[in-house]
C-alpha cells in the first residue's frame, strides 16, 4: 500500500485552476520531494492532502484513507509543518507542545517525556519556558517540527520547511529531516523551491509547474533528461589538438577559444581517464572545468525558465580545478 495516492487531483479557486489534474504515488518510508517555483500549486496540494482544502475533482488517499470521505482518519495519521507559522505566539514553547499533545490525545507522563525528548531533539529544551514571540524564525520552525512529531504521525508534510532561513539553520533542519526518516522510517512529503534541498533530501522528486507535474523520478533520473555531463579542457597547444576519441566520450567539439568540449556520462569517473588519454598524446592540460546538469537545468530544459532562486546561491555547480604537471 502506498502512503499517498493521488489521482487526477484538480483544485480550482473560482475560475483559477491552481492544480490541474495531477497524479502521483508516494511509497512508505520515502521522502518525496515536490519541487517547483512559487505559485506552482505545491501548498494547495499539501492543503488538499491534509484535509484543509476541499478538492474540486479527482481522488486523494493519504495513509489509506480518502481525504474527502474520511478526513478525521487522515488527520489522526499525519503531521504537518505549514509554510507560514502556526504557533501560538503568546504561549511558551512548552505550552505549545503541551496543547498539541493534549489535542492529539496524549496525557500525563508520557506526554511530558515526549515533549522533553523532542524539544531536546530540536535543541530548544533550554528555551522551553520562553514565549514563542521571542523566538527567531529558525527556532520557530524547529519548534513546529518538534510539535509535528509529537503524536508520531505516519506521514509528515513539510511545506517549504527552510524558506527564509539562513544557510546554517537550513543545514540544521536538513539534518533533523534526515534523522526523522532514518530513526522512524517516516514517510515525508516535502515541498520546496530549493533545488539543493530536493536533491539533498528527497528519494524521489516530482517537478510541478503551473499546477501540473512535468517530470518525476530520482534526482539522477531527472538529470538524465537533460543529457550528459560536460567537461571542458584547456590545452597548452590548442592548434595541434584534434577531437579526442575514446569509448567513454559521447561527444566532442573544439570551441572557438580553443577549448575542447567533451560529453561524458559521468564526469567524476571520466576525468582520470581523460588525464591519462591526454598525457599519452603528450599535451599539457592547463585548465579543467566540468558541468553536471542540475535540477535547475532539468527545470530549464522542461519549461524554458529557471526556478527562481531565493537563497542567493549559484544554481550551477561548476567545479574548477587547475592541474599542474
Amino acid at each position: 500500500m502506498y502512503a499517498i495516492e493521488v489521482e487526477n487531483l484538480v483544485k480550482k479557486y473560482g475560475d483559477f485552476e491552481a492544480v490541474k489534474g495531477i497524479s502521483f504515488k508516494v511509497n512508505r518510508g520515502e521522502i518525496f520531494g515536490f519541487l517547483g517555483p512559487n505559485g506552482a500549486g505545491k501548498t494547495t496540494t499539501v492543503h488538499v492532502l491534509t484535509t484543509l482544502l476541499r478538492l474540486t475533482s479527482g481522488k486523494a488517499t493519504v495513509a489509506g484513507h480518502d481525504v474527502v470521505k474520511e478526513p478525521m482518519e487522515v488527520r489522526k495519521r499525519i503531521g504537518i509543518v505549514f509554510q507560514d507559522p502556526s504557533l501560538d505566539r503568546e504561549l511558551t514553547a512548552y505550552e505549545n507542545m503541551y496543547i498539541h499533545g493534549r489535542i492529539y490525545g496524549l496525557t500525563g507522563n508520557k506526554l511530558e517525556e515526549k515533549i522533553e525528548r523532542l524539544l531536546k531533539f530540536v535543541e530548544l529544551w533550554e528555551f522551553r519556558d520562553k514565549p514563542v514571540k521571542t523566538f527567531s524564525g529558525g527556532m520557530q520552525r524547529r519548534l513546529e517540527i518538534a510539535r509535528s512529531l509529537l503524536h508520531e504521525p505516519e506521514i509528515l508534510f513539510l511545506d517549504e520547511p527552510t524558506i527564509g532561513l539562513d544557510p546554517q539553520t537550513r543545514a540544521h533542519i536538513w539534518d533533523y529531516i534526515k534523522a526523522m526518516k532514518e530513526e522512524h522510517n517516516m514517510t515525508i512529503f516535502l515541498t520546496t523551491h530549493y533545488m539543493d534541498e530536493a536533491e539533498q533530501l528527497a528519494d524521489r522528486i516530482a517537478i510541478i509547474d503551473h499546477g501540473k507535474i512535468i517530470a518525476e523520478g530520482t534526482a539522477n533520473e531527472l538529470k538524465k533528461l537533460v543529457g550528459n555531463d560536460v567537461v571542458y579542457l584547456k590545452l597548452e597547444a590548442p592548434e595541434e589538438v584534434k577531437c579526442l576519441k575514446a569509448e567513454f566520450i559521447k561527444g566532442c567539439k573544439i570551441l572557438a577559444d580553443g577549448k575542447v568540449q567533451l560529453e561524458v556520462e559521468n564526469a567524476a569517473e571520466a576525468l582520470p581517464k581523460l588525464f591519462t588519454l591526454v598525457q599519452h598524446l603528450g599535451v599539457k592540460i592547463l585548465e579543467v572545468t566540468y558541468h553536471r546538469p542540475t535540477l535547475n537545468d532539468v527545470f530549464l530544459h522542461l519549461t524554458g525558465r529557471e526556478i527562481r532562486e531565493e537563497s542567493g546561491e549559484n544554481p550551477f555547480k561548476i567545479v574548477r580545478m587547475r592541474v599542474r604537471r
Binding site: T51, R75, I80, F82, P85, L87, D88, H100, I103, Y104
Partner: peptide, 18 residues
C-alpha cells in the same frame, strides 16, 4: 492571522468541541 487556526483545523479533534 498568526496561523494557530490551521493547527486547530488540521487536528483530529471534534471542531464543535474545540
Amino acid at each position: 492571522q498568526f496561523g494557530f487556526l490551521k493547527e486547530v483545523l488540521v487536528a483530529p479533534a471534534s471542531r464543535k468541541e474545540t
